[in-house]
């Protein structure tokens, strides 16, 4: 018989308390709000699943969700291939390796609201370097406060600038772990550069790329600060992503019940898509 030592629970307890206070209890509060209506003064009325029904049938939610998927889809479609290409063209050894790595890491070190503010000023048509160049020197009508297209182009460029480095660094780590013998064997086998990529580099990068895609999906799907500082969701509602809309409902309109319901649905979608990604991308490994 194995003796069981229940004292081990005492080691887990501090972590459990911490997680309870910073995640479980707030989460339960949200669940609590999502089924009630309040007009302040700490008075609540039970509403059941009304907010969920209302939200799932709301055009405003559908539009924000659509914009959110469009944003995430576009930035993934740009950042993942671009990150791989940059990682492939980075030097593998020598003096330039640390230089490249530091340069790559720089954008990620800047606080998110600063990134938003930087790009805001950068893109302003009258005083910003980018805005001025586009409008005056190149003669392209570019004003993100007026044109939804310009606003989208700007938030996407900003995200690509801010986060492609993450994909680069992860892919690079995958690339440098490939032993030289693989490249040598491929040379001897007469493989073309594309085949080297397809059959050696890509398979070896697969695991880090899975992580890169997951991280970029979750981060971009939950993105708030940068587009909020840059466009404030405008012009109109054109760049009102899910999180921006959520904050508008919760703090702008102070509709705590619907906002709580939206948070839970938002959370469920993020979780579901992440799980789908992960399952699809790792299903070959199980065999």
């Amino acid at each position: 018989m194995k003796t069981e030592n229940q004292k081990a629970w005492f080691f887990v307890l501090p972590v459990l308390l911490l997680v309870a206070f910073n995640a479980l209890i707030p989460m339960m509060t949200v669940v609590n709000y999502s089924v009630q209506e309040t007009f302040g003064n700490n008075v609540f009325f039970f509403e059941g699943l009304r907010w969920f029904e209302q939200l799932l049938n709301s055009e405003r939610f559908h539009a924000a969700l659509g914009r959110q998927f469009m944003f995430t889809g576009i930035i993934l479609a740009i950042e993942i291939p671009l990150g791989i290409i940059i990682a492939l063209s980075m030097p593998r050894q020598g003096f330039w390796v640390p230089v490249c790595l530091v340069l790559m890491a720089l954008p990620m070190l800047i606080p998110w609201n600063v990134v938003g503010a930087m790009w805001n000023i950068f893109a302003l048509p009258d005083i910003g370097l980018l805005g001025y160049l586009m409008n005056t020197t190149l003669g392209i009508n570019y004003d993100m406060t007026q044109s939804p297209f310009a606003a989208w182009a700007t938030i996407i460029t900003m995200d690509v600038w801010h986060w492609t480095s993450l994909v680069v660094l992860l892919s690079y780590a995958g690339l440098v772990s490939i032993p030289d013998a693989y490249y040598q064997a491929a040379k001897i086998d007469g493989a073309s550069p594309f085949k080297v990529f397809r059959y050696i580099q890509l398979p070896k990068m697969k695991q880090v790329l899975t992580i890169a895609i997951l991280l970029r999906f979750m981060d971009s799907f939950n993105i708030y600060t940068e587009p909020f500082v840059l466009t404030g969701g405008g012009p109109g509602n054109s760049t009102t992503l899910l999180s921006i809309d959520l904050v508008k409902i919760a703090l702008g309109q102070f509709d705590l019940g619907p906002a709580a319901a939206m948070s839970l649905i938002y959370f469920a979608i993020t979780l579901l898509v992440s799980w789908l990604f992960y399952t699809l991308m790792t299903k070959d490994d199980a065999k």
Partner: peptide, 19 residues
């Protein structure tokens, strides 16, 4: 270059195209 020499080499660690 190696591919023009018609040689074959087997390395210390087996090199396999995993996929």
């Amino acid at each position: 270059p190696p591919d023009k020499r018609n040689i074959a080499q087997v390395f210390q660690f087996p090199v396999i195209y995993d996929t």
